[in-house]
Write a protein that binds this DNA or RNA. Structure first.
Length: 234
DNA sequence: TACCAGGTCCTCG
DNA sequence: CGAGGACATGGT
């Protein structure tokens, strides 16, 4: 087994299944039971969440999503009809609310104009084409696009985020850019949506709880693979 | 109190 | 290209 896969197995046995992407039901999050979006509305909520979580703690995003739900705004048409200022006010807890309000609208405008609100039709594109179209939307970059493809469209693409970069940089991999890192996972893993889903979620958990800015290497389940740790103890 | 959090865009060299 | 700044709230 290759190193990328060994790390995955260790993280999974350590942290357990993460049940991503958490979605709301009846106005509340049920992360412990959630296994991702089960219907169109929940898929749209995942897309909104992917935008709202840019450079922001998920805890803040949850607050914003709960507020969107309360205003019945997990709905593309309503997002386009609401005043910019009002939308921004509702998503205040997510941070960058003015920018993110525009980003939500940009996505909805795209979905209306190109797909007449048909998410399923959008998701029928192949991964390459879907990614290209999403990145063309102002406010959606590579990570947000990939999150949408993996967690809403449920197609296998590996999401690289700040945690992924930090963890694999410390371990000692030379891949630095987004594309290089994504390719590393593509080459070493079976192209499985379930695997990519779980792996990324596990890396987030590792990054949040252990591989922080100042890492807790003694507690790290994969420190035996890590150059950074070996340098510390040497 | 200051720092950090599941990025992206824009500008400038 | 890539580095640097702007965007902003809530938790510790």
């Amino acid at each position: 087994m290759n190193k990328i896969m060994k790390i995955y197995k260790t993280l999974l046995s350590q942290f357990g299944s993460q049940h991503w992407w958490p979605v709301t039901e009846k106005g509340k999050f049920h992360p412990e039971y959630s296994n991702g979006p089960q219907n169109e509305k929940q898929k749209l909520e995942v897309i909104f969440g992917a935008i709202l979580t840019q450079n922001t703690n998920w805890n803040n995003v949850e607050k914003a999503i709960v507020r969107l739900n309360k205003h019945d705004l997990i709905d593309g048409k309503k997002i386009l009809n609401i005043d910019d200022k009002k939308l921004a006010e509702i998503i205040i807890p997510s941070g960058y609310h003015n920018q993110k309000a525009k980003k939500l609208k940009n996505f909805c405008e795209f979905l209306l104009k190109k797909y007449d609100w048909d998410l399923s039709l959008l998701f029928k594109n192949n991964i390459y084409e879907l990614r290209k179209q999403l990145i063309d939307i102002n406010g959606i970059g590579p990570e947000t696009a990939d999150s949408i493809i993996l967690y809403a469209a449920k197609q296998p693409i590996f999401v690289v985020d700040a945690y992924t970069k930090r963890v694999f940089d410390r371990i000692g991999f030379k891949e630095k850019t987004y594309d290089e890192l994504q390719e590393l996972f593509n080459k070493n893993l079976a192209k499985s949506e379930k695997l990519f889903n779980e792996y990324h979620a596990l890396l987030v958990e590792l990054g949040k709880s252990i591989c922080k800015k100042v890492p807790l290497c003694e507690k790290c389940p994969i420190n035996n693979h890590c150059n950074y740790y070996r340098k510390e103890v040497a």
